[in-house]
Amino acid sequence: MKVRLPFRPQQAIDTPYSIQVEGLTKRFGEFTAVNHISFEVKKGEIFGFLGANGAGKTTAIRMLCSLLQPTEGKAMIAGYDLATQPKLIKRHIGYMSQKFSLYDDLTIFENMQLFGTIYGIPRKELKDRIFSRLEDLHLADKSKTLVASIPLGWKQKLAFATAMLHRPDIVFLDEPTSGVDPIVRREFWNLIYEAASHGVTIFVTTHYMDEAEYCGRISIMSHGELKLIGTPTELKEQMQVDSIEKVFVKYVVR
């Protein structure tokens, strides 16, 4: 017998925010990895998420991507409730991590096709999207190259393109530029700006303080808490220093 569930509207709630977090907490036993963090991110905003290693950034991101169940707190991601609609959230977010995470022994095209199909993009449409993205990246003639044989900088850009294939509303970038040279980093940030200009919300973590300056707003996490949020200029004024690096050091070391 099939049980018919009561009709529930699956539309996203329309707000100017694409991420709204309230009192989000994660405890592992006695240890509180993330302690009641609250913030909002507007649509199309580039939101920098900073913090020392072990400050709880990764745990927070994993919760926001619905990879980890929060112990407490609420979050609305892309207009969906984290507690009740994780599947819908997954459809509307993209993710790319510091660790390059495409398959080395598949070709560029096969990698993109795999993830595109998993995200439910129809076959023909997917092929068009892949090739138009590859042309933007000047990689169209390399579509049959094994990912193992291309340089890291290209790989990172490719991973970003793959994370964007299903046109997510929000893309989470976990230290996307670690380990690549300054030129590629600059190119990568151009891609980020371009995506943001199309209304995609960018949620990015980084350890490069110059990159933090590129963000619309930044937040700094320390010991599981998130108390410092604002535009780079605001934060510098607040802490009375002249660079984000000094803000970071002053706040985290304090």
Binding site: L67, Y95, S97, K99, S101, L102, F115, I118, G120
Partner: peptide, 13 residues
């Protein structure tokens, strides 16, 4: 180990 599992699990699959 390579991190691709996270990519797969983040996807709606």
């Amino acid at each position: 180990e390579t991190g691709t599992m996270r990519m797969l699990l983040i996807a709606p699959v």
